[in-house]
Design a protein around this nucleic acid. Structure first.
Lengths: 199, 199, 199, 199
DNA sequence: TATGAATGAGGGTTCATTCAT
DNA sequence: CATGAATGAACCCTCATTCAT
């Protein structure tokens, strides 16, 4: 990669990270392009060399952050030696929930913005290294040798939606209960979902 | 109610309905106070006599629309003669899903904005007739003579979160599948959740 | 007219006159809405209460200024006692040319922007008192008792186009000659045009 | 001409033609340097190696396009065998009008921008082959053996201004009438102008 | 109570121009 | 000669909010 291209990648990354920190701290609606470039230390016009508008950079961020989240969880899973399908999924969910607990603004951002559409777009058209990993994790979970799922995509969809929406309320507002109290019920439900999709 | 008070209530209702139609058709971010008052046929200053700002009227609307949704479903339930707890909840969910199918912008509005916090606020502090009704439905479901739930609030919470988040994607974008294909899995999962909370 | 309405008319007039002085001194392209409101002493948003954009105010100005130009010339004609059709038209043209000589920026503005379309729109839909006068002058010239014109509209069109385009170059740049030197030829040509349209 | 010089001429021509197509289709105000270089397939900086700014390239274009227009008309005239001065001028005007009818955006461009100043600059300082040709046509019309004109430059000036301003309205907007209906009057007036300048 | 004219900060976006490569 | 990434001033326009009527 030439020096110029490296420079460009750094600018893009800097804009992405500035946008993320602002989106998560002040919310997307209250973040202006001005804010983002100011935090990045680049000129306003530069933003438009890399992104179409605020929503373009948001979409890039969701895919990127969700991928990193899963990659991290998957790394831990690899080290754990777990091989049972139920345990694997619960492990991943638990790890992700813990990441959320430590980074509540990430939770707010992902929960409010992750849609299954962006999810799949990112799988099919990875725009970043982390998103390539993401694809590998996904396909490894789905195409296992030991088990056959009925409609595995629907299964994952339901688990992800259930986890993200309940955690949002439990972790951020302890509503109706805190995450610790919620977990047993949540994990039981996830197991039920998996069971439902086993042949 | 005096004629003046009636007039005031009509103005407030008119503002609420105008805001709802604009929020659902153009989105909250793209709706201005100007738009709302123009559609309502009242002056700009008048808005501030009834609501603090755009987000104030939005919160009022969520509670109001969610209550109406549940009330309608409950009316149908009453006429159905169903008394089994599983069937009752599935019936309610199914009815609400059907309402969503017929009114997709309502789904988008409720899904993106309904939080358990507003939900409970509305239960505890009803600001409208429909919300009082709402409370009755809720307590009738929870405090039944025939069954005892463990943590009934968590159960309802999970069901509501699961339904609203999966329906959002399935009904509006047919992602990962359409609502018809999703329903069997969804209902099975709801039954599992209920079962889990029965003593 | 209420005090409020009077105030509004004054604001509108002030904006029109500010825009005119800026358009004529700096050109339309180099005049921003900011410039106009600054000169008018009103807030930026106020501009948009009265005009759609820069081109809206420009069109209003052309009609207004052209009407005032003709009205002034016609007033002088009334006082002159001239009744011969050739002499009347030459008198009007001469008077307008002299107005242009004294107000070159007005000439630049009118010449570059007056189109027959705006001309007729202003005749049909006067948006101002001066434009009503304008209509009267026009119809009095066309519908005379003493003479009958063939295609009087085409005749006026040609005279106006010839005068405005040649004066632009002659008065502003003395190209190919100054206005004094041009006049004899111009007036002869106008007479030829009139003659051509007499039955 | 060396290969390098040829390459440079091609770049310049390419920029000129791109600018022309954009100016005529979108208008000068809505055309940016970015647009021009994009259409030309050269880098932004390259533009500034050949032209000072947008208005520089516009002036080059007017002279170039006006010259081409006259050259084409003159070619046709040469082939026609016409030798009478009235007929020659009418022939040229008619030919140019017909060119305008077939290329309305050219008409809009020329009419709005051709000034007698640029006209003469182009005559005196031709910046291009076509402009040299242009000069020949001009002097051949003026310095004839068979006739002597009084102030031939004023004569041509008036004809050109009258034709370009009336055609603009008639061809582009059919105001006050279409070009076909206008032509008889226009030609009569041109003949009057010529007659006026014959000794 | 109700009005709606007025505000002006601040939003998104464009673009001519420069300059290191 | 040619490039095109970067700049940042300047643009247009919106809008929540106020306040005299």
């Amino acid at each position: 990669m030439s020096k110029l291209e490296l420079n460009k990648k750094q600018k893009r990354d800097s804009l992405l990270e500035s946008a993320f920190s602002l989106f998560t701290s002040k919310g997307i609606n209250n973040t202006s392009i001005s804010d983002i470039v100011k935090q990045s230390g680049v000129a306003k016009g530069t933003f438009y060399l890399y992104f179409k508008d605020k929503y373009d950079i948001r979409n890039m961020l969701i895919a990127r952050k969700a991928s990193q989240l899963f990659s991290k969880a998957d790394d831990a899973l690899m080290k754990s030696g777990i091989s049972n399908i139920f345990d694997e999924i619960i492990f991943l969910v638990d790890n992700i929930i813990n990441q959320f607990c430590e980074n509540k603004s990430l939770l707010a951002f992902i929960s409010k913005n992750l849609s299954w559409g962006i999810f799949k777009t990112s799988l099919i058209n990875p725009s970043d290294d982390s998103e390539v990993y993401f694809y590998n994790i996904y396909s490894r979970l789905i195409n296992r040798e030991d088990v056959n799922f009925v409609d595995p995509e629907i299964m994952l969809f339901m688990i992800i939606e259930l986890v993200s929406s309940t955690c949002y309320s439990a972790i951020l507002y302890s509503e109706p209960v805190g995450i610790a109290e919620l977990k047993p019920y949540l994990f039981d439900n996830i197991k039920s979902i998996i069971k439902r999709h086993l042949v």
